[in-house]
Simulated scan of single mutants.
Amino acid sequence: MAPPSTSSPDDLQRVLARAARISRRSEDITPSEPVTETDNATLHRYGDPGDPPLLIIYSLVNRPAILDLSPDRSVVARLIEGGFCVYLLAWHPPGAARRYLGLADYILGDIADAVDWLADRHAALPHLLGVCQGGVLALCHAALAPERIRSLTTLAAPIDTGSTDDRLAQLARGVDFDALVASTGNITGQGLATVFASLKPFALGPQRYGGLAALADADDAALEAFMRMERWMYDGPDLAGRAFAEFAREIYQHNALMHDTLALDGLPVRLAAIETPVFNAWAEHDHLVPPAAAQALTRRTGGACRDYGLPGGHLGLFIGGRAHKQLYPALIDWLRSH
C-alpha cells in the first residue's frame, strides 16, 4: 500500500496559482519545421535532413505532443539522437466540411503521399513508425505498399480486438456507429477524452490530481510537463465522422485485421503481405491496448517481427523512464540494423 500523501490543500492552491502564471509554451519541445502539405496534414521535419528518414504516423484521436513532452522524455529527441531525421505527419482537424473523410483518404492519400515525398527527397525508403491508432494506419499502408518502406515499427497498435480484456472493444459492441455519426457529424475530442478517462477513473482523477499538489515545490519545467500532459489528455482534436465510424466498426466490432476482411477503396488489407521487417512494442499493463491485442501482429505478418513488451501502462510506453532507458535504445539499434 502506498504511504499517505503529505500534501496539504495549501500545497494544491500554491501549485494551481503557479500553473496559472506559467505561460503556455510552444507545443514543440524539439525544434521542427513544416516541409510540405498533404490533403489533410502537415509534414514536419525534426533533425538533420542528411540522416536516414523516419516517418511517424500518429493517431487521429489525440495530438502528438505526448511524443515530445519534455527534453528528457521526448521520443522524437531519442530518435534524432539515434541518428535519424524524424518526420511527423500532423493531422489537420477535419472541420464540418470534411466529415466524410474515410480511412482510405488518410492511408491511400496522406500517408502514401508523405512516404513518396520522403523517398524522393532522401533518395531512400523511409522507416515507418505508427503509434496507437496510427499503428493501424501504418500497418494498412505497409500491407498495401510494402515495397515503399524500409521497416515498420508499431507502438501499442490494436491488432486483435477479440480478447476478453479489451475494454474499448467491449464498449464498441452493440453501438451503431454509422447512425451515431449521421446524427452528430464529426466526433468531438472532448467526448472521446471523457470515454477514455472513464476506463481508468481513479488513476486519471483523484490519484492524478492528488499528485499535482506534490509539485508545489517542483521547478517550472516539471509543472509545465504536467500541464502539457493535461492539454494532451483533454484537448484532443475532433475526428472525421466517417473515419471514426469505419475504424470503430472494422477494428473494434469486426476485428477485421485478424479476419482479413478490411478493404480500402476495394483494396484488401492483408497483414501477411507485410514482408518488410517489423518491430512491435506494447505495454504489459495497458488499459487501452491490452498486450494480447498488440502481440497478435507477430503471427500475422509475412516477414520477421521483433517483439518488445515493456512493464507499465499505456503512457509509460512514451514518457516512462524505463521506455527511454530500455525500449528506445533497443528500437534504435534495431532500426540501424535495417
Rank of each mutant, 00 (worst) to 15 (best):
A142W: 03
T164Q: 14
A182C: 04
A143M: 08
E147T: 01
R148I: 00
D178Q: 13
A169Y: 08
D166E: 03
D176M: 04
G185K: 02
V131M: 09
R173V: 15
D178F: 05
L125P: 11
C140E: 07
R150I: 06
A193P: 00
D160W: 02
L180H: 07
P126Q: 04
A145P: 01
A193N: 06
F177Y: 08
A143I: 08
L139H: 06
R121S: 14
S198M: 10
I187K: 02
A197D: 14
C132R: 13
T164R: 14
V195R: 13
L168S: 05
S151Y: 07
P146C: 02
L180Q: 02
T184D: 09
A124L: 11
R148V: 00
F202I: 13
L192H: 07
V131T: 13
G174M: 05
D120P: 02
L199Y: 12
R173P: 04
L168M: 15
T153P: 10
W117K: 00
T154P: 00
A123P: 00
V136W: 11
G174S: 04
S151K: 02
D116F: 06
A112E: 13
F202R: 11
C132K: 11
T184R: 10
A124C: 11
I187G: 12
L129E: 00
D166C: 11
